[in-house]
Computed example of a mutant assay.
Amino acid sequence: MAAGARDRDGTGRARNARPRDALGRPLPYGEPGEPRAPEGVVRTPAETLHEAQQLLDAGRPFHAHEVLEDAWKTGPDDERDLWRGLAQLAVGLTHAARGNTTGAATLLTRGARSLGTADAAAARHGIDGPGLVRWAARLGAAAAGGTPMDLTPPRLRR
């Protein structure tokens, strides 16, 4: 791809087609990368949670974030904080795994704040909102304090 050129989809929207590693970092064009979740897929909440959990457990939090982001963008308005919060937690874990402690602490804090306002939506889908907020607080505090971080992914559902 020529310098300054942008990847575009069939409708002309900018899309980054560069391959990515397991943590979502762009690789050079032509390099083998991790399979990416297609964007804009409408899934049921159960499908979203199942797929995101599988990706988290496989050490692919960036890709889990993409799945959760689809739910955030396509879900009902009264669940936006829930899906945004979960997506932000996945990005926070991504930053932690990449060694970006500042980004990890920031996104984990934002995710926990969003989840803190989504108790009813979380309960509807069997999501352990309070447990995820505690997990984010622990990981965020470790990231902010420069102490070793436990990168074990959280359980999204009870």
Rank of each mutant, 00 (worst) to 15 (best):
P32T: 15
E51L: 15
A58L: 12
E39H: 05
Q53D: 12
F62S: 07
H50P: 10
R36A: 07
F62Q: 08
P38Y: 05
P38S: 03
A37W: 09
Q54L: 12
R43K: 09
A52R: 12
R43G: 14
G24M: 08
A52D: 10
V41T: 05
T48E: 14
L49T: 05
T44V: 07
A37E: 13
R36I: 06
R25Q: 14
E51I: 09
A37H: 10
H65N: 06
L23S: 08
R60D: 03
F62K: 01
E51V: 12
P28L: 11
H63D: 15
G40C: 03
P26D: 06
D57C: 13
L23D: 03
R36S: 02
A37Y: 08
E31N: 07
R25A: 15
H65R: 11
G30E: 01
T48I: 00
A46I: 01
L55G: 04
T44G: 13
T48S: 04
Q54S: 02
G30N: 00
P61L: 14
P35I: 10
L27Y: 00
T48V: 05
P28Q: 14
R25M: 13
Q53L: 09
P28Y: 08
T44M: 06
Y29K: 12
Q54W: 03
P38T: 03
L55V: 05
L27Q: 07
A52E: 11
T48M: 07
A64L: 11
V41P: 00
A58R: 10
L56V: 06
Q54M: 11
E47L: 09
Y29H: 13
R43D: 06
A37P: 01
L23T: 00
H50R: 15
A46N: 03
R36D: 00
L49S: 04
H65E: 10
G59T: 07
E47I: 00
E34N: 00
Q53N: 09
T44W: 10
P28R: 12
A52C: 03
P38H: 06
G40P: 01
P61E: 11
P26C: 06
A58S: 13
E47M: 07
A64W: 11
P28K: 07
A37D: 12
Q53E: 12
A52W: 00
P35R: 07
G30T: 05
F62A: 15
Q54T: 09
E39D: 12
L55N: 00
L49N: 04
Y29V: 11
L27D: 12
P28M: 13
F62Y: 03
P32F: 08
R43T: 10
P61I: 13
H63V: 01
G59I: 08
P32Y: 14
